[in-house]
């Protein structure tokens, strides 16, 4: 079973539906015990960095999430769900993230382009990643975000994307995956990534 983490900020049906189409059994949950029982975790981020950490804290999910990740459970963070894996974000100064990965989250600034970065853009992929099997480098994915991650560990990069600057649009470190774009909104190639994650 894949636990889809719900911290009450939005509709997770599209993520859940996409995972089901990709062949998974899912449970949308905000219950710490489910993180113990599940085989994998998908963490779709909705809203802002500070609010999200506050809600995770209120629901008692921070430590169970970190434990599950450090126990080696395959984990996929989407959009803000990837950003929260890092130490801090310019969106919420002073708020500590999940600190699973080293690095921080920055706002697009001075790039001479519109923010949010909204629409379809290419991903350039690091060769060999299982989760991107069948997804060509240069594939278009749907993005909508104003902040991007800057991992300290350069090897954590899974995909990169150009938007004024070249930023890390996907990460992969051991059992931890993160995507800045929305695979659940990116038609067939997005579903392919989720299917790969389900099969891991």
């Amino acid at each position: 079973m894949i636990a889809v983490i719900d911290y009450g900020m939005g509709n997770l049906r599209s993520v859940q539906k996409a995972l089901e189409v990709a062949g998974a059994r899912t449970k949308v949950t905000s219950c710490p015990e489910d993180l113990d029982k599940c085989d994998k975790i998908v963490f779709p981020g909705v809203g802002a960095f500070g609010d999200a950490m506050k809600e995770l804290d209120r629901l008692g999910l921070i430590e169970p999430l970190r434990d599950a990740i450090f126990d080696g459970k395959p984990f996929l963070g989407l959009c803000l769900g990837m950003q929260l894996l890092f130490e801090k974000s310019e969106e919420a100064p002073g708020v500590e993230g999940l600190c699973v990965l080293r690095g921080d989250v920055k706002r697009f600034r001075g790039i001479g382009l519109k923010v949010p970065h909204m629409g379809w853009n290419n991903i350039r992929k690091k060769p060999g990643a299982e989760i991107l099997k069948g997804v060509p480098s240069g594939a278009y994915m749907y993005f909508v975000h104003s902040y991007y991650v800057k991992p300290r560990d350069k090897d954590a990069m899974l995909t990169s994307t150009d938007y004024g600057i070249n930023f890390v649009s996907g990460i992969c470190k051991c059992n931890v995956y993160g995507l800045q774009f929305h695979p659940e909104k990116s038609q067939a190639l997005g579903l392919k990534i989720l299917e790969n994650f389900v099969k891991l």
Partner: peptide, 8 residues
């Protein structure tokens, strides 16, 4: 590159 969107 970010593409222009066509929206019905």
């Amino acid at each position: 590159m970010l593409t222009k969107r066509i929206i019905p």
